[in-house]
Simulated scan of single mutants.
Amino acid sequence: MEALQFYERIELNDRSQAVKKKLDKKMFYDYGDVNKKEKNVITKFVERMELTYLLTPSTINIQAFINEEYHYEGVMFVTVQLRDDVTDKRVRLLEEVIHGALPNPIVITFAFKDQICVSSCMKRLNRVNKNNVVLETIHRTNWFSESNSISVVDNFMQSMLLSNLSFTTFFDFYKDIDLAVKAYQDSEIIGAYKVLRDDKERQQQETIISQINDIEQEINTLKAAIKKESQFNKKVELNMKVQQLKKELDNIKRNAK
């Protein structure tokens, strides 16, 4: 799936005119507080960055949301075309730089060959310096393409349809996008796509995700110990612990769906 296909499927081109304005890498070097390592990744792996869509109250029927903590006057859809296969670590570096450099809420669509992944991040004003923003948790989907017909992708695309997003304010609009991206990210852990708008439900799911991560880490530690263990009886004992943890993991994931 190319980025433009993605924007078309979520109804962006039905609601707004594409801008397709190239974003100069130098802008991120100068204003993004970029270190040498980050600059090298941008230079080496980014083919092109562009502001593909810019939604404001003058281009779409959504009101700005401004208070002491949040300043949401519009939403930017930024496309990042990559020139080479990029590791998850480098994509994480790129999204941190881009989200941090631009004060507006941004939907980043990373594109490589026929695949894309989508990144979002709620941000709030810095209480000390109102010209700077503080990034909350960055969320990102897996890479997917037009040919992916798995339920997670289908559910995500449905959640991202502009007609399914809140048009009350840009804060609510972008929050819905961020929750949709987070649901995709969490689905890789819990095995189900669920957009949770209730704070209590989200906290409960975070607790479950933390439990899953802890158990998976414990399983990996035990597997590493099994490889190093020379005594047969010890290996059997460690294997039994692994199997018990796997059953516990399956039960937690089953109940989380």
Rank of each mutant, 00 (worst) to 15 (best):
M1L: 12
A3W: 05
Y7E: 01
D14S: 11
S16W: 02
K26Y: 14
Y29F: 15
G32P: 02
D33S: 14
V34Y: 04
K37M: 03
K37C: 00
E38M: 02
N40H: 12
V41S: 02
I42F: 00
T43R: 14
Y53A: 06
Y53C: 00
L54G: 04
P57I: 03
Q63K: 15
V78Q: 00
T79D: 09
R83T: 11
D84R: 00
T87R: 13
T87Y: 09
R92N: 13
E96T: 14
V97N: 01
G100P: 02
A101R: 00
N104A: 15
A111V: 08
K113Y: 02
Q115K: 15
C117S: 12
C121S: 13
N126F: 01
N129M: 09
K130R: 14
N131V: 04
T137D: 15
T137C: 07
I138N: 03
H139T: 12
S147W: 06
N155I: 02
S159P: 03
L161A: 12
F167P: 01
T169V: 09
Q185S: 09
I190C: 09
Y193P: 05
L196D: 06
L196N: 08
E201L: 12
R202Q: 10
Q204N: 10
I209L: 08
Q211F: 08
D214E: 13
D214T: 12
E229I: 04
Q231T: 09
N233E: 08
V236G: 10
N239R: 14
Q243C: 08
L245P: 01
K246L: 13
L249W: 07
L249C: 06
K253Q: 12
K253W: 04
K253R: 15
K257R: 15
